[in-house]
């Protein structure tokens, strides 16, 4: 069983978009390693040839008639936004300059 390194956790934190502090990283490496060791038990179960189950119910596609129905007003939709401009969500830059 491969164990998690501090670099692994730092990389996962980047993927998960969480800016962990150095102290958080130090603590989490050990904690996650213990949890991973415990949950790896699934690999010992008699799972050879068993179909995976993603959901408790047989899922079927659900559609509705394509008609307008009541929905949020623009003000309601924007009511929780950290920043609003011209009736739109205002966000930080998404591209690097130049």
């Amino acid at each position: 069983m491969s164990s998690l390194t501090r670099d692994d956790v730092a990389h996962l934190a980047v993927l998960a978009r969480i800016d962990l502090s150095e102290a958080e990283l130090d603590r989490m490496v050990g904690e996650l390693d213990v949890i991973l060791g415990a949950v790896a038990k699934v690999q010992q179960a008699p799972i050879d040839g068993v179909a995976p189950m993603s959901h408790p119910l047989p899922l079927t596609n659900v559609t509705r008639p394509d008609v307008v129905r009541p929905s949020l007003t623009p003000d309601e939709a924007l009511s929780g936004a950290p920043e609003v401009e011209e009736q739109r969500f205002s966000v930080p830059r998404i591209l690097t300059e130049d």
């Binding site: 998960a16 996650l32 949890i35 991973l36 790896a40 699934v42 179960a45 068993v50 179909a51 189950m53």
Partner: peptide, 26 residues
């Protein structure tokens, strides 16, 4: 979140999330 990100990463998916889904069937 970090644990879930790991369990779903390519290379580990079958060993962790995939195995867990099979246990769910059992």
């Amino acid at each position: 979140i970090i644990l879930g990100t790991y369990a779903l990463s390519s290379g580990y998916y079958d060993a962790y999330y995939g195995s867990a889904q099979k246990v769910r069937t059992l």
